[in-house]
């Protein structure tokens, strides 16, 4: 009995004392978006090889998950940087501050285009965001013109828009857990949805109903959730010329011999069109830095410098080679300036 009590005491002492706790860390710990992951890892590797610092560790947790970990507190057991494929929300910043993470520096690194692609053998449709919304939403405005919603009746693209070919609607895309899906819903579905005035009016009156209408994707088999693996979508498109796929621009860029991007509202997903903003389906990418860690973790400053350097983020930098769409010149200058001064977000 005595022994058991002793063992218990030792255990509880171990739990509360910092014996086990990490007292220092000599590598940078990064978490966050799976969209930014392929870019951040390239910078990290370059940084690890070119300098004497250790290669940063990068976990792909998704934007939301990353921010949650990032905001858990200050100290070596918490990550130093989080990547995000959307801007941090106000509520998240408040959460951060409540946990002692008061100063967060935002770094915008570039843009990512979402591409709607098909096999090379496909029909090369000209789509608009409205077409995509009508083809993929669970509920759509009644085709008879009355201002009511009905379960999506469309079977082929021709039903959606008479100008399109009579091909069965079959779209392979990411599941709801994916940031790519969030971006697709936000950039395509919401926009297509708002092209109907009576739904747009709903946005003001009943935001919840608006969201439910615009952001719910049909579940009758026309939209196929293809898992988080974009390579799989590319392979499936190759095998099925009538299907469309939704994935990030970098996958389109790497597989141009197998798949082709479709023009949205007449604009092809190209490097230039995304960079100058004429391609409608693109989103900015960020990372957030915990200012309190910059002086503590070795190599933080150098890592941020490497990320922001011309040879990484510039027009011909190695990130552009990987499919990141660089920031326009003036925006780049502004970001570089604010990061140099380590201006925290308000």
């Amino acid at each position: 009995m005595k022994k058991a009590a002793l063992a218990l005491a030792v255990l509880s002492a171990a739990a509360t004392s910092p014996v086990f706790a990490q007292s220092s860390r000599d590598y940078i710990s990064i978490v966050g978006s799976s969209t930014v992951y392929p870019f951040a890892t390239v910078v990290a590797e370059q940084f690890g090889k070119a300098t004497k610092f250790k290669t940063p560790k990068i976990e792909s947790t998704g934007s939301g998950g990353g921010i949650k970990l990032f905001c858990a507190g200050v100290g070596v057991q918490h990550p130093d940087i989080t990547n995000a494929s959307r801007a941090i929300k106000k509520s998240e910043l408040e959460q951060c501050a409540a946990n002692g993470v008061k100063e967060v520096v935002e770094v915008k690194i570039g843009y990512d285009g979402l591409s709607v692609a098909e096999s090379k053998k496909g029909k090369e449709m000209q789509l608009t965001r409205r077409d995509l919304f009508l083809a993929l939403a669970k509920q759509v405005p009644n085709p008879n013109g009355t201002q009511t919603l009905v379960d999506n009746p469309y079977k082929t693209w021709k039903d959606v828009n008479a100008a399109l070919p009579a091909v069965k609607i079959e779209v392979l895309g990411p599941p709801p857990t994916s940031g790519t899906r969030d971006a697709f819903v936000e950039l395509v579905m919401d926009h297509g949805c708002e092209s109907f005035d009576f739904i747009k009016a709903m946005k003001k009156a009943d935001k919840k109903a608006f969201k439910a209408t615009c952001q719910t994707i049909r579940e009758d088999g026309a939209y196929v959730e293809a898992g988080e693996n974009d390579n799989l979508i590319v392979q499936k498109l190759d095998a099925n010329p009538s299907a469309l796929g939704i994935f990030g621009f970098s996958f389109l860029d790497q597989n141009r011999d197998k798949v082709r991007g479709l023009a949205i509202e007449g604009v092809q997903p190209e490097f230039e069109t995304i960079s100058n903003g004429s391609y409608p389906v693109s989103r900015p990418l960020f990372f957030y830095v915990k200012k309190a860690h910059v002086e503590v973790i070795p190599g933080m400053k150098e890592f941020i410098d490497e990320f922001l350097s011309k040879k990484a983020m510039g027009n011909e930098g190695y990130l552009a080679e990987r499919g990141l769409i660089p920031l326009p010149k003036d925006e780049y200058a502004a970001v570089a300036k604010s990061v140099k001064a380590m201006e925290a977000m308000k």
Partner: peptide, 27 residues
């Protein structure tokens, strides 16, 4: 993503099945 080969049980590390998963997901 861990580029440095771990030297001991305290270094950050990944495992073979994880590596397979990460590579399968690369463009």
């Amino acid at each position: 993503f861990i580029a440095d080969v771990p030297q001991g049980v305290f270094d950050p590390a990944t495992a073979l099945p994880v590596q397979i998963y990460l590579w399968a997901d690369s463009p």
